[in-house]
């Protein structure tokens, strides 16, 4: 199918993206007492623990002006969106096998809807940032207007990795196990609990090959007035774009046989 026609189909099925993520949100908080508050509790507690462990016990300092906890928080939110989305999306096609086998729609709808669900949590958890900024009497500068663009970059980055893993997982269920491990490692190789400025200067550009580095740095720049390491940002944009292009290509190549392989 031609590119244009494919995206036209995706657009035609856009309500399916909405309804599937609506279903996932609805189901997730069925029979829970605090419901959507879980989207706040989880990142908040992880941030507190990381602050205590790295700042209070290991005595790491934030090289910039913002308090350590704010720095962790600004890294934790995009990271958690990335980790949850990629983790859930990896199992999304296999988890919806009933749909894949019985109805036609562009298969990309399924990982997309998982990511939209992730966005829902992300926006709720953003309340913590606002609360924490107020708590520390910290005022973001003008560059806060770039937050929406950074969210788009984050979404694209998570989508690109999700597309690879979800289609590989249809064929090889090893990826279900691999992804949980990869996400654990990713937490420590991405600058979530520390600042990428702590790295030796010569390493920074290589470190920025991890697209999440530029994104997390970007959030700290926009929200916490950190100085921006622009080469890292450009590199992150390039790798994200490249991964997304490859991811979509790979997904579209394999999606035709999903119903046969699942």
């Amino acid at each position: 199918m031609a590119h244009k026609k494919y995206w036209h189909e995706v657009w035609k099925f856009r309500e399916l993206i909405y309804i599937l993520s609506w279903r996932d949100i609805k189901i997730r908080y069925k029979q829970t007492v605090i419901g959507t508050a879980w989207s706040i509790v989880r990142p908040l507690f992880t941030t507190l623990i990381f602050t205590v462990v790295f700042n209070r016990i290991a005595r790491l300092q934030n090289p910039s002006e913002a308090p350590y906890m704010l720095m962790v928080l600004a890294g934790m939110l995009p990271w958690q969106f990335f980790a949850t989305s990629v983790g859930d999306a990896t199992n999304s096609i296999t988890g919806n096998a009933g749909l894949i086998n019985k109805v036609y729609f562009p298969r990309i709808i399924i990982p997309l809807s998982t990511l939209v669900t992730g966005c829902f949590d992300f926006f709720i958890s953003f309340a913590i940032v606002i609360g924490a900024l107020a708590w520390f009497h910290f005022m973001p500068h003008w560059q806060v207007i770039f937050v929406p663009l950074l969210i788009i970059q984050l979404f694209a980055c998570a989508l690109s990795i999700s597309l690879f893993f979800t289609s590989l997982n249809v064929r090889y269920r090893d990826f279900r196990h691999l992804i949980t491990f990869a996400i654990q490692v990713g937490l420590y190789v991405s600058p979530v609990a520390f600042s990428s400025k702590s790295l030796p200067a010569g390493w920074r550009i290589w470190y920025a090959l991890n697209p999440m580095v530029g994104i997390i740095d970007g959030f700290r720049w926009a929200l916490l007035n950190d100085s921006m390491y622009w080469p890292g940002m450009y590199l992150s944009l390039c790798t994200t774009a490249l991964l997304l292009w490859l991811g979509i290509g790979y997904f579209r190549k394999t999606e035709k046989t999903f119903a046969d392989d699942i």
Binding site: I19, R23, L99, K102, V103
Partner: peptide, 23 residues
């Protein structure tokens, strides 16, 4: 197809309808 046991009849009408291609 796509009916979810936890959702109500009303919710499933919408879910199933959209899955089958209705707006």
């Amino acid at each position: 197809t796509g009916f979810h046991p936890e959702l109500t009849g009303r919710e499933n009408i919408f879910l199933n309808g959209v899955i089958l291609g209705m707006s």
